[in-house]
Design a protein around this nucleic acid. Structure first.
Lengths: 223, 223
DNA sequence: CTTACATTCATTGTATACAAACAGAGTGAC
DNA sequence: GTCACTCTGTTTGTATACAATGAATGTAAG
């Protein structure tokens, strides 16, 4: 799904800023394809909440602080539930996956700080691996699509959070706390650890939004 | 979105049973349109979880009892949250909407029993109105898409539940309990009332699945 | 100067033709 | 008889042409 991924990247990286209109022909030219695959990608993006379609055409969605708060509320609810279920249903293989993801995380932070070979994208990816491992351990595959939707939006505000060693270490510690609770099958402890972890991330994103304060910035226009 | 609605109806009414393959041309012929709108509808249905696409083509999704249980778990989580938030944030207008929906429900049950003018579809619709009013009262519009997804699937198993006066009255009572808690801004009471209401519905659907036991029935083939 | 209407242009929605990919049947070798 | 391979037919994926629909601009009347 390369057309979809490409547009998604452009939105998440800010190349297509909020409120920018996305015409099919523009995207078709840019991605050197026809309008048909573009339309399908746009439909999917809309169902993920990254775009909105008006009477005529589609625009990159604009999110207010309230939106972000509410989306994070849902993410907390869903991932908290996943963590609680994981504490009950996790297999030994699940635990191994989580441990592995955390080791990778640890190494990636070192690498990022020391050599700079590892990129933020890599770190985001490894973080994602851990969260996915938790969902997998919950043994409820239906959760995935819901969490995907609430996870993707805040990535638009890829905050300074992810560039800060202290925050990265803190995040890893949170993962370890969570993993311990899941190992010990301590369901409520796991849920709360996840709640705290996600709300902490939310606070950082909201802080970021305050500083750049682009809520009301007009859309860049094409051409 | 009439093509989408039409295919959805066919799936929910059992005309397109689980595992049935849906080829684009077949649907295009049936709905007297071209493949393009069909493809878009199928993409959307897939994102709602009603179909799955294989390497080649798409099939109506088949759900096991475990799937239904897990989907209801998520629905309970989400609607319970919505109810709790509604208890906090509801406006007077929200309360009025809920009261109205419950009145309609009451009348519809009477009408259904006595005259038979009101159909099950009507009743489902009014039930839906109440649940939507609760979500609206939560003041978190991002919940809608998530709940839509977990609500639609069980409709495939439109159980006997909806044909039974006693169950309908019971359901209305549950709505009233919930409404009272929301009126009194009793958040935890509202959450629990919603949990109970949804799990009760789940029990009925699972009971239904036991009796018909079509989990392992092969797919009808076209032609 | 403002409003209402009409004409034009840009953009989306639908149909269709063509290319690509996969499944299944048939054929041949071992 | 079985396995592997090719060939054929069906079905999806992509491009493109055409139709339909809004939006915007210009024009004329009040």
């Amino acid at each position: 799904m390369t057309v979809y991924e490409s547009i998604k990247r452009s939105i998440l990286h800010g190349e297509f800023p909020p409120k920018m209109r996305l015409t099919e022909e523009f995207l078709a030219n840019k991605l050197e394809t026809s309008r048909t695959p573009i339309r399908e990608a746009l439909k999917q993006l809309e169902s993920e909440g990254l775009t909105v379609s008006m009477k005529r055409g589609v625009r990159v969605r604009h999110f207010t602080k309230k939106d972000i708060q509410q989306i994070y509320d849902l993410r907390t609810l869903l991932e908290g539930y996943a963590a609680a279920q994981a504490a009950i249903h996790r297999t030994e293989a699940d635990l191994e996956n989580m441990r592995l993801a955390n080791e990778s995380y640890d190494n990636a932070i070192d690498n990022y700080i020391q050599t700079g070979e590892t990129t933020i994208e890599d770190i985001l990816d490894i973080n994602h691996q851990f969260h996915n491992a938790v969902i997998h351990a919950s043994q409820n595959p239906h959760i995935y699509s819901h969490i995907t939707k609430v996870v993707v939006v805040p990535l638009i505000f890829r905050s300074f959070y992810w560039f800060n060693e202290e925050q990265l270490r803190h995040s890893l510690e949170a993962h370890k706390t969570l993993l311990k609770a899941i190992e010990e099958q301590d369901m409520e402890r796991a849920r709360v650890a996840m709640h705290e972890h996600i709300y902490h991330g939310r606070d950082e994103v909201l802080k970021q939004m305050d500083t750049i304060d682009e809520q009301y910035s007009p859309a860049k226009e094409i051409q």
